[in-house]
Structures are given as structure tokens and as C-alpha cells.
């Protein structure tokens, strides 16, 4: 075997030279034990492109939604082709509370404020309730209760928003106005937020249950070994430890809440002039007026007015701009959860 070291020494230059390489390959046994048919090999080589195309379609959709909403929404602020209607300035749209499209007033501040108010109120209920229920399911509930709670949350998340809406309309509104408001209509932020809270709580519960379940058991054991009660362990150790994920859960709940349209539209009262109305009336304390004045949000106003406006009008374009605003908020929310996720890993 005197030749062996030589050929080994020569191996590197061989590999870099294609002609030599094929020579080496051909010196291997000619026929592999098993070969797929030509069709199989082609399919295997190219099929991933098909799968990739499906993935790229999703990417294209994200861009497409942005493009088409922007193309229409921008029409309210810029003279685009075929747009002969009124051109608005950013100031009179985003900094005005006056919404009266028929007399050319297009301030969307009431809707932004409405969306933020109803979402904020809903989170005020849903975030603590959801996180505490999460800790209950993960750490305190016996097995059967865990299963039961999971099923309850599955059902709550599966109920369609119009059914939540009709429940609010037929059950909650009459009950609230009969019980507390001496029969004045109860439409407004309070009832909308309460219904919204029930709609988003399953999201927060399931994500925070996961968060608590993924914490190392040693945290809890260590805390209890130091003499803490279970609640002290939960409050001082587990909740702080799970905080980034709990925040993610809350932010995703926020995302669901801000985009919800139909359920709120059915109970909020759909009054674009709610800020003015709230200022004028004096018959109740300010907080009650805030909670029970018929109002409107970005989403409810879209549902309410989109069917009644002509395509290409300033009014119509501005509604698409409001949709764009919602979409940008969604993106922001997703990016925020990303940020939180990275914090968690660091």
C-alpha cells in the first residue's frame, strides 16, 4: 500500500478541481443500491418551492393589505388621480374632535379616543382577572378544575362577536339601565368594555397559564422553603418572574380588543359627537357620564359608515385611512410582543 499516503496528500487539490472531482466520483461504485425514479427526484428537488410560495403569499398579503389601504387612505390627504373631492390636512383630521362629514368636518380624534378608552377599560378588567385566573389554573387548581377552566375559556373564545353583541343588546343593556341608571340608555364605554373584557380574557388566561407553567418549579419550592405562603410565593416570586410573558399576554389581548368591531358596534351607541355630548350634559358625575355616554370607536365607525359612502369620496377615503391606522397599530403591537420576547430570552 505505498500509494495510499500519496493519494491522500493529493486529495485537497483534487477536490477543488471539478474535472478531477468527477473522476473521483466515477471511481466510486456505479449504481447505488436504490434510486428513486426521475419523477420522485424532481418532485423532491422542486416541491419546497411550492411550499415556499405559500409562505411568500402570506408575506405578500401583509404588504398587499398595507399597500391597498394606504393607496385609498392617502387619497383623503393628497390629490390622487380621479380624486376631485376635498383634500384634508393632517391637522384637521387628527387634531379635531369635530366629525360631521356632511358639512366637511373630518376630525377623527373622537374615534381614536373612543378606541383607546374602551380598550383601556377592557384591559383594566381583563388583564388582572386573566393573569390571576392563569395563576389559578397553573398553580392552585386541582386537575378537574384545570380541565374545566380550559374548556370554559375555549368556549368563551369560540363565541362569535355578534353573539356577544346580541347578548349585550338584549341582556346587559336593559339590566344595567334598569338597575343603575333609572332607565336612561346604558350604551357607552362601560358595557362595551365589560363585554370586550370577556371576549379577550381567554387570550390572556391561556397565555399567562403557559407563562406560569413554564416557570421552573424550583422558584416556587425555594420560596416556600424559605417559609412563604403559597400566595406570597405567587405574588412576590412567580408573578415577577413571569412578567415579560404576562406583558406579552396583555399586549396580545390589547390587540384583540382594539380590532374588535361588531360586538362593540352593537352596544356602544354609535355617537361620533360623544366628546361634545359628554361636555354638555351635567346631570351626572363626570365618571358616570364618561362610562354611559353613547360613543364610537375607529372600528364601530367603519362598520357604521362604510356602506353609506361613495367610493372615491373624501369621506370614504378617510374611512380607509382609519382602517390603515388600525392595521399600523396591529403591526406595532406585534413588534412590541417581539421586543418583549427578546427581553425574555436575554
Amino acid at each position: 500500500m505505498p500509494d495510499a499516503p500519496d493519494s491522500l496528500l493529493e486529495a485537497p487539490p483534487c477536490a477543488s478541481d471539478p474535472a478531477q472531482e468527477s473522476l473521483v466520483l466515477e471511481s466510486l461504485p456505479k449504481e447505488p443500491a436504490f434510486r428513486h425514479s426521475r419523477l420522485q427526484r424532481l418532485a423532491d428537488r422542486w416541491s419546497h418551492l411550492l411550499f415556499l410560495a405559500c409562505g411568500l403569499l402570506v408575506v405578500a398579503l401583509i404588504g398587499g393589505i398595507l399597500y391597498f389601504l394606504a393607496a385609498r387612505g392617502v387619497g383623503a390627504f393628497m390629490p390622487l388621480a380621479g380624486n376631485t373631492d376635498k383634500i384634508l390636512t393632517l391637522k384637521e383630521v387628527f387634531l379635531s374632535t369635530d366629525w360631521d362629514p356632511n358639512s366637511g368636518k373630518f376630525g377623527i380624534l373622537p374615534f381614536i379616543a373612543g378606541s383607546l378608552s374602551v380598550t383601556g377599560l377592557a384591559l383594566l378588567i381583563a388583564a388582572p382577572a386573566g393573569i390571576l385566573t392563569g395563576v389559578f389554573i397553573a398553580k392552585l387548581a386541582p386537575g378537574w378544575m384545570k380541565t374545566l377552566m380550559r374548556q370554559v375559556m375555549d368556549l368563551l373564545v369560540g363565541i362569535p362577536s355578534v353573539v356577544y353583541g346580541i347578548f349585550g343588546l338584549m341582556v346587559v343593556l336593559p339590566w344595567v339601565s334598569g338597575k343603575w341608571l333609572s332607565d336612561s340608555p346604558a350604551a357607552g364605554f362601560a358595557v362595551s368594555a365589560a363585554i370586550l373584557a370577556v371576549m379577550i380574557v381567554p387570550t390572556i388566561v391561556s397565555l399567562s397559564t403557559d407563562a406560569f407553567e413554564s416557570l421552573p418549579l424550583t422558584l416556587e419550592e425555594g420560596s416556600q422553603a424559605l417559609g412563604s405562603t403559597r400566595w406570597q410565593a405567587i405574588w412576590h416570586v412567580l408573578i415577577p418572574a413571569a412578567r415579560p410573558r404576562l406583558l406579552t399576554a396583555t399586549v396580545l389581548g390589547l390587540g384583540r380588543a382594539i380590532g374588535e368591531a361588531m360586538a362593540i358596534q352593537m352596544v356602544i351607541g354609535n355617537n361620533p359627537q360623544w366628546i361634545a355630548l359628554m361636555r354638555q350634559s351635567t346631570d351626572q358625575t363626570p365618571i358616570l357620564r364618561f362610562l354611559f355616554t353613547p360613543a364610537a370607536t375607529l372600528t364601530t365607525e367603519l362598520v357604521q359608515e362604510l356602506p353609506n359612502t361613495a367610493a372615491g369620496s373624501t369621506w370614504n377615503n378617510l374611512l380607509f385611512a382609519m382602517g390603515l391606522l388600525l392595521y399600523l397599530m396591529t403591526m406595532l403591537i406585534i413588534l412590541a410582543t417581539r421586543r418583549l420576547g427578546r427581553q425574555r430570552n436575554a
Binding site: G55, V58, V59, L61, I62, G64, I65, F68, L69, A71, R72, L252, G255, R256, I258, G259, E260, A261, T299, L302, V303, L306, A311, F320, G323, L326, Y327, T330, M331, I333, I334, T337, R338
Partner: peptide, 28 residues
């Protein structure tokens, strides 16, 4: 990571926004 970001964004997109998109593209 990028694909997942897109999927998450699409999943979180409010249905009213998808409705606007469908209205522009398919309906009109």
C-alpha cells in the same frame, strides 16, 4: 423568523381591516 412575524401579524390583523382589503381588491 420573518415568516413567523408575517403569520403573527396576519393572525392579529383585525377582521375589519381584512374586510376593507377584501372590499378594495375583490369587491371593487
Amino acid at each position: 423568523r420573518f415568516l413567523r412575524l408575517c403569520i403573527e401579524t396576519l393572525a392579529a390583523t383585525p377582521s375589519i381591516v381584512l374586510a376593507l382589503f377584501g372590499m378594495i381588491v375583490f369587491v371593487q
